[in-house]
Write a protein that binds this DNA or RNA. Structure first.
Lengths: 231, 231
DNA sequence: GCAAAAGTGTTCATCATACACCCATGT
DNA sequence: ACATGGGTGTATGATGAACACTTTTGC
């Protein structure tokens, strides 16, 4: 038992895990196996390890990485993970005051098969943001967390490098464009996107990678991300 | 005494209060009156009220508003207050695990005199970001919180409406430009800024307000903020 | 009159958008 | 041969930066 002079909240991390599969933005949800919200779909996440001793426990980002790897089987490195927002409304958890620090993670499509390699197939699933999510009621306030996460990446995808976190290490221009389209839910003009892409190459953001990609038509050149454009 | 099965962190809110005084971006700091970091300058803030009962206590945003008004004397309404980031590194507080949810507040220059109307004059002070802050060591990790807050508003000032939160209800073009210059620390071309401003008027973001402002030269027209440009 | 700041004009480069078009390849 | 999608061309309009210039006030 741990005693404190004043009441304290429980602290959790929740992670919005996103990827693009077949030109479709998807979110990973876990089916809850315990009350409250038993059998309801929820974000992966859990309690932050806190210690009253000298070490004080684990950092928030480390907790998010740990929960992500524990609940989904994804590797701890190579994954983009960024803090999203702290959700601490009263009443968001019926058991008592729980504050959650939400993170969002971007999974490149080549890592998708790693998800839940050792977990039950029934309790983790990718959901299409456009087609399936609107009809789905999530546990707690996880619906609001997902909404904020979508706003965040939609706002960032055209002005930052996060799109590169959703494609394999090497990719074609069309693949990168499809990621943009899946995230924003709108079509991009292929010609104009290509020009934007060529500017990135001129600026050293991307570079040609060896090999070609055989497609439905003419084979496409393959590129790789070279470095952060804006630090 | 409050008992829990697992150790829990203490939860605080800290607020980076910013304003522009005389074309200079300033931050409000409070001198700590207790250990740790006694007599060191720190951000206003304090513990979030949590209850183990049915009501669960107060929301995070409400806690930030309350602390802001308690420690600075600023009014609870009329103030822009937005969540910045959750800081939860282990070791950031020597007393034990403390997680803080940081907010930033923007104070229009006409409200500056309200600060600390009822408080000791010695323990709250506006510090110039450009001239005084670099040499100042803050309590805890508050220096990092301030840095992130500055990055946030510098990134937003040209692409959102936050500049209007730093000027009085009615203002001249030059006043708004000076706010931009104070925040970014760079000079804006008066002619180009005016044109940008005129576009805002064309788009209905701002509108003419009654009256003129007598300046060092020709009197300037006065404007007021009409509505959010991007919702 | 003169300084200072309001306000206008002009030029140039960059970039988003729209859309037409050519070209190489697998079937 | 032909559809598919890679890749190119081009015109237009909005915007940002740089900078010269005119106008209106207070002193």
């Amino acid at each position: 038992m741990h005693e404190y002079a004043y009441p304290r909240p429980a602290l959790t991390v929740d992670i919005v895990v996103m990827t693009v599969i077949d030109t479709d933005l998807k979110i990973l949800l876990i089916k809850r196996g315990a009350e409250p919200f038993m059998n309801t779909w929820a974000l992966p996440g859990g309690f932050v390890q806190v210690s009253d001793g000298k070490d004080q426990g684990e950092d928030l980002q480390a907790a998010a990485h740990r929960e992500l790897s524990e609940e989904t089987g994804l590797p701890k490195g190579r994954l983009f993970l960024e803090q999203l927002y702290a959700f601490g409304q009263t009443g968001r958890d019926p058991r008592g005051r729980v504050v959650t620090v939400a993170y969002y993670a971007l999974v490149p499509s080549d890592l998708v098969p790693m998800v839940c390699a050792g977990s039950d197939a029934d309790d983790a699933k990718w959901w299409s943001v456009a087609n399936e999510l609107p009809d789905l009621r999530l546990a707690f306030d996880h619906g609001a967390i997902v909404d904020r996460s979508l706003s965040r990446i939609r706002g960032k995808v055209d002005d930052s490098d996060i799109a590169f976190e959703l494609v394999p290490p090497s990719f074609t221009i069309a693949e990168l464009r499809e990621v943009h389209e899946a995230v924003k839910g709108t079509a991009y003009d292929p010609g104009n996107f290509r020009r934007r892409f060529m500017r990135m190459q001129r600026d050293g953001v991307i570079e040609v990678a060896p090999g070609k990609r055989t497609t439905a038509s003419k084979p496409a050149k393959v590129y790789r991300f070279a470095g952060r454009s804006r630090v």
